[in-house]
């Protein structure tokens, strides 16, 4: 067994949140640079150029990338040989989120009740997903996600008779119908299989895959490519001004499912795809 103080987890969570809020991941930056090069629409080009400048300003750690500093999703991969000491892991994560949002001057965007809507004023609670894995290490990933984009996501319980084309149509039509509401250029995470809830879970995890890579199965790599191409033929463009940059990337994760089902979920993320990870 390896002992690990949860006090370290608290500071780590706060640090990861700040890193995610100020540094746009390299794969997203590269995709924006490429899009500026390829984009024929002048308004779209100018918006993309400003998004890059925005990322540069944000790296100085005064202004976060976006004012919607999001709800925090925490993904834990815990080695089963770790023994946590000096408190509860969950408490440490909550304290870390609170600390990060306070010290980072981040916007507190969480309401305690979905209908009564009173702000919790500390951005708590986060949503935590835990996986128990082999070994004595812990991998922590934080994803602060804005809801302008989250609101444009979709899920459908398709049937086993649905074809690859049916699935592509569901995703492409949904993304195009949301137009410019979700802050395009977007990154689309797709989850196929599992169950009602698990398809949504893996669609969010798909957002964390590098957009300059593709699915290892050529069948799904081809689907990723076709969905991206068709979204970009919509002429929605960055912020809806037109152009061919409506999405920067599409990634798919699949999971085995039941003989009677074919759940399909897509998670819409704006260009400000914020995430940071560490292994302790």
């Amino acid at each position: 067994m390896r002992e690990l103080s949860v006090q370290i987890i608290k500071q780590t969570i706060a640090d990861l949140i700040l890193k995610a809020q100020h540094f746009l991941p390299d794969d997203i930056k590269s995709a924006i640079i490429q899009a500026i090069h390829d984009e024929p629409n002048q308004s779209a080009k100018e918006i993309l150029r400003i998004l890059l400048e925005n990322a540069d300003i944000s790296e100085k750690k005064v202004f976060p990338l976006c004012q919607d500093t999001g709800m925090v999703f925490v993904y834990l991969e815990i080695g089963q040989e770790i023994y946590f000491t000096r408190g509860l892991l969950k408490d440490a994560i909550y304290s870390g989120v609170e600390l990060g949002y306070k010290e980072g001057y981040l916007r507190k965007s969480i309401v305690a009740d979905p209908i009564k809507r009173v702000n919790t004023k500390n951005n708590l609670p986060p949503i935590i997903f835990t996986d128990i894995v082999a070994g004595d290490r812990i991998k922590i990933t934080v994803v602060p996600k804005g809801f302008g984009a989250e609101n444009q996501s979709g899920l459908k319980m398709m049937t086993p008779s649905a074809t690859k084309e049916d699935i592509i149509n569901f995703i492409v039509n949904g993304v195009i119908a949301s137009g410019s509401k979700g802050c395009p250029p977007a990154i689309i995470g797709v989850g196929i299989g599992g169950s009602f809830d698990y398809s949504a879970n893996i669609s969010k995890r798909a957002l964390l895959l590098p957009i300059n890579e593709c699915n290892s199965d050529p069948f799904y790599a081809d689907m990723e490519k076709e969905i991206l191409t068709r979204i970009n033929e919509s002429d929605i463009g960055p912020m809806g001004v037109g152009g061919k940059t409506t999405a920067l990337g599409v990634r798919i994760i699949t999971y085995p499912t039941h003989i009677a089902g074919l759940p399909v979920a897509y998670n819409y993320c704006c260009h400000s795809l914020r995430h940071a990870s560490i292994e302790l």
Binding site: I47, L51, N54, P64, L65, C66
Partner: peptide, 8 residues
């Protein structure tokens, strides 16, 4: 409209 995600 202005630029979403260009808050900084």
């Amino acid at each position: 409209i202005t630029i979403g995600g260009a808050g900084a």
